[in-house]
């Protein structure tokens, strides 16, 4: 997993609330047995017309957002299906950070496993960042995980909370299976105790 330390990048505004994982990556692209290559299909139905041409009204199709790495989105981003194809598609598209007032639980966890930082801010802060993202390629937003801060192109700084274990893994690009396997003795002990106390499991 790629480390996430500090990101200085173009941000795109997606003010819509409840952007679900079906919108981020529709079901026809879940048939892959790989993690890569989904970026071209991200936001497929909003991004492409029925004939396959680009929908010019969709924010990520606009010239001002070419090379975008940050999304600033409406409440409850990533709701619905657990598909990790959603963060895979975002990552493959180039998104390393999503900022919203809330995220669906499974999507939120999935982001951390893939080197994407989900940032939770207040409604007022979101409006400020949404406005800044509206400047497109004329502006750069700075997301600093170490200091848990987002800085607008005008120099306004917002701080955010993040779980310290998730932060540690993301900053260092750690594989958490490896970390868990270091505690294998505890798991072994738990399992033998369960085999005795709850043999039906």
């Amino acid at each position: 997993m790629e480390k996430f330390e500090k990101l200085t990048a173009i941000a795109a505004p997606m003010a819509l609330i409840n952007i679900d994982t079906d919108m981020i990556i529709p079901k026809q692209f879940l048939k892959t047995i790989k993690r890569s290559g989904l970026g071209v299909s991200a936001f497929h139905e909003m991004r492409y017309n029925l004939d396959g041409t680009d929908n010019p009204d969709f924010v990520l199709n606009k010239d001002a957002y070419k090379g975008v790495n940050i999304l600033v989105a409406g409440d409850n981003f990533g709701c619905g299906s657990s598909r990790e194809h959603a963060p895979w598609a975002l990552l493959d598209f180039g998104i390393r950070c999503v900022i919203s007032t809330s995220f669906a639980d499974i999507f939120y966890n999935n982001c951390f496993k893939n080197g994407i930082l989900p940032v939770i801010v207040t409604e007022d802060e979101l409006q400020l960042l949404m406005k800044d993202a509206g400047k497109g390629s004329n502006a750069r937003m700075v997301v600093d995980l170490e200091n848990q801060s987002v800085e607008t192109s005008d120099g306004e700084v917002i701080t955010f909370d993040v779980d310290q274990h998730s932060k540690h893994c993301l900053i260092n690009g750690l594989d958490d299976i490896g970390l868990t396997l270091e505690k294998i003795a505890s798991i072994d002990a738990f399992e033998s105790q369960m085999a005795h106390s709850a043999p039906w499991v």
């Binding site: 993690r35 657990s82 598909r83 990790e84 963060p87 499974i106 966890n109 999935n110 496993k113 893939n114 958490d176 299976i177 868990t180």
Partner: peptide
């Protein structure tokens, strides 16, 4: 859970 967690 997501696929990374499935692997975990």
């Amino acid at each position: 859970i997501g696929t990374s967690e499935v692997e975990h």
